[in-house]
Design a binder for these strands. Structure first.
Length: 260
DNA sequence: ATGGCTTATTGTATAAGA
């Protein structure tokens, strides 16, 4: 919200019930214009609308017990809200879309896929197909569009701490990377890579094996922006500080600053 | 070594995440 800058962010919180204090602290220190959350893991009746409102944030959410759940937070008006991918049957609450300040904001929790030989992997690929087909139309209607979320895809070897060990695994497999490329081919840009970045920049670290301390991570949370928004991008970065707190999410916020 | 943490659940072991 600082003058001249419009700040977008995405964060997989791995249970908003547990992480609400971290989210409120982060909102207060960072004052984003848009924060997309994934894995709220709660039904809408449990969503903390009041606490967020008190912090100055409007919110829209679709969620379910235990799994999934996505939300968009903003101090600005949140309009034309759409839940899910239109014309794609899916019981899992993974997408919410809204218009904020004449920008179409798509918040997505792309399926994990579990393992390349699993049904969940097939679901992931078909789900990505449906998302891509729909976004093609959505981009025509809304040239100013950003797709923020947990993609569960590390698009390039430099987005993986040990590419050799991960070859062919879920999150880095060729079919998943092709699906990511198809999103890019719609006229979207990986905003993080529009700028020079430190080597071994990641957005997720395994809770096990001291993954964070050893920086054994992946960059799987992304902010893709449309052609129309690309010239407005001013800075992009990952904020590792919430990952250092007590009881952190395994993901950490990814941020994009636009020139307003 | 397919483990290792963390979360949530008609829980006290299981499923899922990535």
């Amino acid at each position: 919200m600082s003058r001249g800058t419009f700040k977008l962010a995405t964060w997989n919180v791995n249970s908003l019930n547990v992480r609400l204090p971290h989210v409120l602290d982060w909102l207060a220190s960072n004052q984003p214009d848009v924060l997309c959350l994934q894995e709220t893991k709660q039904e809408d009746s449990k969503f903390p609308y009041a606490a967020l409102k008190e912090a100055g944030y409007n919110a829209v959410h679709i969620g379910q017990k235990t799994y999934n759940g996505v939300a968009i937070l903003s101090p600005h008006a949140i309009e034309h809200v759409q839940a899910g991918i239109p014309n794609y049957e899916d019981e899992q609450k993974r997408v919410i879309t809204a218009t904020i300040k004449e920008m179409r904001i798509v918040c997505a929790y792309i399926p994990n896929g579990q393992a390349v030989d699993s049904d969940k992997y097939q679901y992931k690929l078909s789900w990505l197909n449906a998302l891509t087909d729909w976004l093609k139309a959505e981009l025509q209607a809304h040239p100013n569009l950003a797709l923020l979320g947990d993609y569960n895809i590390a698009p390039d070897d430099r987005d993986c701490h040990d590419p050799a060990a991960w070859v062919g695994q879920v999150l880095v497999s060729p079919a998943e990377r092709e699906a990511f490329q198809k999103l890019v081919n719609l006229g979207l840009h990986d905003s993080f890579r529009l700028f020079e970045q430190p080597d071994k920049s990641f957005s997720w670290w395994d809770y096990r094996m001291m993954g964070f301390r050893r920086n054994l991570g992946l960059r799987i949370d992304h902010i893709l922006v449309s052609d129309a928004l690309k010239p407005k991008c001013k800075a992009a970065f990952i904020d590792k500080s919430p990952r250092k707190l007590e009881r952190p999410s395994d993901h950490t916020p990814v941020i994009l600053e636009l020139i307003q």
